[in-house]
């Protein structure tokens, strides 16, 4: 027999928390791609600084969300196991390396790229460790968040930097890989019997519209490869914006709890205990 569904949508992390994953993903992606572009000889000052600003904006949004903002430094107390602490600890050297690079310290680019990747990985692991929320704790959330950040950063770089062919290819590959991993993630959630409220989001018009825009982004990026720079730029914008939409839904709408599950009913009187399946 099946039991009543008691899963509900979490209400503690709102758009401010989603904003950290959105701005942090695009920001670190931009810093990473800027470092690659610097290695190819491009002027990357604007995308690099904007990437750092986005990371800072994301952290500021979290600061606005926490209940005791004047104790924010306590976030650094638990690097042994907390991915939130680790994310915070990487932020300062990321800003330092990025600003040093912007001021002409060339090795700063490579250091900032590594730290940006680490920061994004921490964000992915933060979600993975959220065991109350099956949509976040699924193992495939880690590659999905990493590829979403890369797709956003590579897409945004086409607008903020020089949309040369290698970077259009990078944006297209990242956007395509994100789409494949997103589908594997959806199937993984379904196989793991994630809450119906979470699975329903993949069928909703908002998510369908986002998927259409993601495919449109890939088509526009492909057109960019045959010489249409404007289409590559628009494709890049769409690749970034669709990532924002996905993360906003993931954090604020599709985040259902596991709910309460009993595997057995108790014996009462002459009645016998029965096995219970989740709803």
């Amino acid at each position: 027999m099946k039991q009543t569904n008691t899963a509900y949508r979490q209400r503690y992390w709102d758009l401010r928390a989603a904003g950290n994953f959105i701005a942090g993903g695009t920001g670190t992606g931009l810093v990473f791609v800027s470092a690659l572009a610097f290695a190819t000889g491009q002027n990357v000052l604007v995308p690099l600084l904007l990437g750092l600003a986005l990371v800072g904006l994301g952290l500021s949004l979290v600061w606005l969300e926490i209940g005791k903002p004047w104790r924010a430094f306590n976030v650094f107390f638990h690097p042994q196991t907390s991915w939130m602490t680790r994310e915070g600890m990487l932020a300062t050297p990321l800003f330092a390396a990025g600003l040093a690079a912007a001021l002409g310290f060339a090795p700063g680019f490579a250091i900032a790229a590594v730290l940006a990747a680490g920061f994004l990985y921490c964000q992915a692991r933060m979600l993975r460790a959220s065991r109350a929320i099956p949509a976040w704790s699924h193992p495939r959330i880690v590659p999905l968040i990493l590829l979403t950040g890369l797709a956003e950063g590579a897409g945004a770089y086409l607008v903020l930097g020089e949309p040369t062919r290698p970077f259009i290819v990078l944006a297209l590959v990242a956007a395509s890989a994100r789409e494949i991993v997103r589908e594997l993630y959806r199937r993984g959630l379904s196989a793991a019997a994630a809450p119906e409220g979470t699975l329903a989001w993949f069928r909703r018009p908002e998510e369908r519209a986002l998927q259409t825009l993601r495919i449109a982004a890939m088509v526009l990026l492909a057109l960019g490869l045959v010489g249409n720079t404007l289409s590559a730029t628009i494709g890049g914008v769409l690749a970034a914006l669709t990532g924002w939409g996905f993360k906003a839904i993931l954090v604020t709408r599709a985040a259902y709890t596991r709910g309460l599950r009993i595997p057995r009913t108790p014996t009462r009187g002459r009645d016998t205990a029965r096995a219970v399946e989740p709803s």
Binding site: Q10, Y12, W13, V62, E65, I66, G67, K68, P69, R71, A72, N74, V75, F76, F77, H78, S82, M84, T85, G88, M126, A129, S130, R131, A132, I133, W136
Partner: peptide, 29 residues
């Protein structure tokens, strides 16, 4: 992240209200 959540030797899980920053990450976990 703040080590506000602790576990006593007798197994009781506690929260130090003076350390907690109210990030709600533990609620998600």
């Amino acid at each position: 992240p703040s080590t506000a959540t602790g576990k006593r030797a007798d197994g009781i899980v506690t929260i130090d209200y003076e350390l907690c920053i109210g990030c709600a990450y533990c609620i998600m976990a």
